[in-house]
Simulated assay, not measured.
Amino acid sequence: MVRIIGSPSRYIQGKGTLSELTKYTEKFGKKMLVLVSKSGKGRVEEKLNTAVNGTDTELVWEIFNGECSKGEVERIRKTVEEQKCDIVVGIGGGKILDTAKAVAYYANISAVCVPTAASTDAPCSALSVLYTDDGQFDEYLWLPKNPDIVLLDYDIVATAPIRLIISGMGDALATYFETRACMRSDATSCMGGKVSKTAMALSELCYQTLISDGPKAKLSLESGACTAAVENVIEANTYLSGIGFESGGIAAAHAVHNGLTCIEETHHKYHGEKVAFGVITQLMLENVPEDELEEVLDFCIRVGLPVTLQDLGIEKIDRAQLLKAAELACAESDTAHNMPFEVTPETVLNAMLAADRVGHYYKNLFA
């Protein structure tokens, strides 16, 4: 089997980059559909107006309805067609970016991802995660190519709510462990190939960056400072994790996240927050050495990621409810089966219960 590495055509990260957007997009087209939330528009409108000032690029604004669903993708695709846009620019969180990528695919136009927070590894990937209109996981939409441009502006990303970058750390935390599992099982990556040494190295660098710079980045952001640690974590959350997971693969951690979406009490939690608990669950499935488990739990507790079911909003453990989540995690089409051993709803349920207990133990130990 071939080894395949996917990446965006351009990855741009720096201060004031959004005000220079047209410098990077001019070769793709002149009419942009800008997909953004109502509140997000207020944060970026001035910068985008600066970017198009003095150029012949035209902006068409579209407000995101809140869910990356098939209906929302089709609604925006129709607008693209009616307005004759040749670029779709998604500005916001993971669901907006995934929607923009899906729209670009169906409309056969260029895709630009502009995260307003380093909260997921979605921007760089050739993947859109589709949900139902009420927020439950629906399916993965694998795309034929990565975005044309991924652009992060420190003026926006570093001033986003700190919880968002912490959630991004939770999502990125899974990259190394899931890529390692896929390499051990010889699973097929998200790109349709086997795990390359490059993907494994990027995934490991992602993990090392989180461990060394994650807690410092959190403290820096709490003081209102954009330090080298913050810049490193932004790169880890977005690029290293994005390329690592896609060229490496995903396994039980993200499958557990998908399962947890069926529990209403978790709906207020961000993607990466649920993935972080999925990482601990995967480590319990693998029965990793105690020092590795302790390093992960120490990191999660220090930066404020969930390590227990209670942290996810589940105040009372309901085994039947958790079994339903475990069954969803083990769906035939999901990625728990990329683990290097058989995974069943019963083993996932037991791993979630054990992860919860271990999380409580270490929270008390590190208190």
Results as ranks from 00 to 15, higher is better:
A181L: 10
C182W: 01
C182M: 13
C182L: 14
S185R: 14
D186C: 11
A187G: 10
T188Q: 10
T188D: 01
C190M: 13
C190F: 08
G192K: 12
G192T: 05
G192S: 14
V195G: 15
S196D: 03
S196T: 06
A199V: 02
A199Q: 00
M200R: 03
L202C: 07
S203C: 12
S203Y: 08
E204C: 06
L205N: 10
C206T: 00
C206Y: 04
C206M: 13
Y207P: 11
Q208W: 01
T209C: 15
T209F: 15
L210F: 10
L210M: 07
L210Y: 06
L210A: 12
I211M: 15
I211P: 14
S212T: 08
S212W: 01
D213E: 08
G214V: 00
K216P: 03
K218C: 06
K218M: 02
K218A: 05
K218F: 01
K218R: 14
L219A: 15
L219K: 10
L219M: 11
L221W: 00
S223T: 00
S223A: 11
S223L: 13
C226T: 13
C226G: 02
T227L: 15
T227C: 14
A228Q: 13
V230T: 10
E231R: 09
E231M: 09
N232I: 00
N232P: 03
V233H: 15
I234V: 03
A236E: 08
T238K: 00
T238F: 07
Y239C: 00
S241G: 10
G244Q: 11
F245T: 01
S247C: 14
S247E: 02
G248Y: 05
G249E: 07
I250N: 11
I250E: 13
A251W: 05
A251E: 04
A252T: 08
A252Q: 05
A252F: 03
H254N: 12
A255V: 09
A255K: 04
V256Y: 01
V256D: 05
H257A: 04
H257Y: 01
N258P: 10
G259R: 13
G259F: 09
C262P: 02
C262S: 08
I263L: 12
E264F: 09
E265R: 07
E265V: 03
T266S: 07
H267Y: 01
H267M: 15
K269R: 13
K274P: 14
A276F: 04
V279Y: 11
I280A: 12
I280W: 09
I280H: 01
T281M: 14
Q282I: 01
Q282F: 08
M284T: 11
M284V: 09
E286A: 13
E286N: 09
N287W: 00
N287T: 10
N287H: 09
N287D: 14
N287P: 03
N287S: 04
P289V: 00
E290P: 02
E290F: 09
D291M: 02
D291G: 03
D291S: 04
L293C: 04
L293S: 03
L293F: 04
L293K: 14
E294F: 06
E294H: 01
E294W: 00
E295H: 01
E295F: 04
E295D: 09
E295V: 04
V296H: 13
F299V: 00
